[in-house]
């Protein structure tokens, strides 16, 4: 008889913990399993008749049903709040990343366009006309490619990542003497752009930047 009541109790626990987070579910099932065993073992040791143990177990199960249901509800609410909070934190971090990417790429691109334009317009005198035209045009083009990447943003994230990477690499090559700044900055831009593209193509939340 105790086996039947224990089976009913286990069945109920399995039912009300179904679909819960694994740690909550397993902990509650183990708690009750251990309790059922201890109850039977203690009563056997005390010489309590089996039917009395069965009645006690049945009572403990039935009387606890409302508490089981409300516990399940509370855990679901708590888990949902935790998920929401985590989602908010993640979204905030993604927004920071996306804004950082936009600002950094925009500054780099603008710097190149401005320096390239000044070079073409002979505002730096140590280069020949051909050199000025070649270097200036390269820098302007690299800057414009990056600006195009910034503009594409979340509309076409992989295209944007490609344009930003192309612009960053071209800049690092064209101004190799500034590699100490351009290589790390370029790597940051490329990494952030790829992360954004991966997130957006996986169905993640769009940037709020």
């Amino acid at each position: 008889m105790t086996a039947v009541v224990a089976g009913l109790t286990r069945g109920w626990v399995t039912l009300y913990t179904a679909g819960m987070a694994a740690d909550d579910r397993d902990a509650r099932r183990a708690d009750v399993e251990s309790d059922l065993w201890d109850h039977q073992a203690t009563n056997t040791e005390l010489g309590v008749p089996a039917f009395v143990t069965a009645i006690e177990m049945l009572g403990r199960w039935l009387i606890g049903i409302p508490a089981d249901i409300s516990w399940r509800y509370e855990r679901d609410v708590t888990r949902a709040s935790e998920r929401l909070a985590m989602q908010r934190r993640r979204t905030m971090w993604q927004t920071i990343q996306d804004r950082g990417l936009t600002i950094l790429a925009f500054l780099m691109a603008t710097f190149f366009v401005v320096v390239g334009t000044f070079t073409v317009l002979q505002m730096r005198g140590e280069l020949t006309t051909e050199e000025r035209l070649v270097y200036g045009s390269m820098w302007i083009i690299a800057g414009l490619v990056m600006l195009a990447g910034v503009y594409m943003g979340s509309r076409s994230p992989w295209m944007a990542a490609g344009l930003l990477a192309l612009g960053a690499i071209a800049m690092a090559l064209a101004m190799f003497w500034l590699f100490m700044f351009l290589v790390p900055a370029g790597l940051i831009v490329i990494t952030l752009a790829v992360l954004r593209a991966r997130r957006l193509s996986a169905g993640g939340p769009p940037a709020t930047a």
């Binding site: 626990v13 309790d35 199960w61 409302p66 089981d68």
Partner: peptide
Amino acid sequence: TSHGTLYK
């Protein structure tokens, strides 16, 4: 004490 009340 019932299972539900106790473990909750």
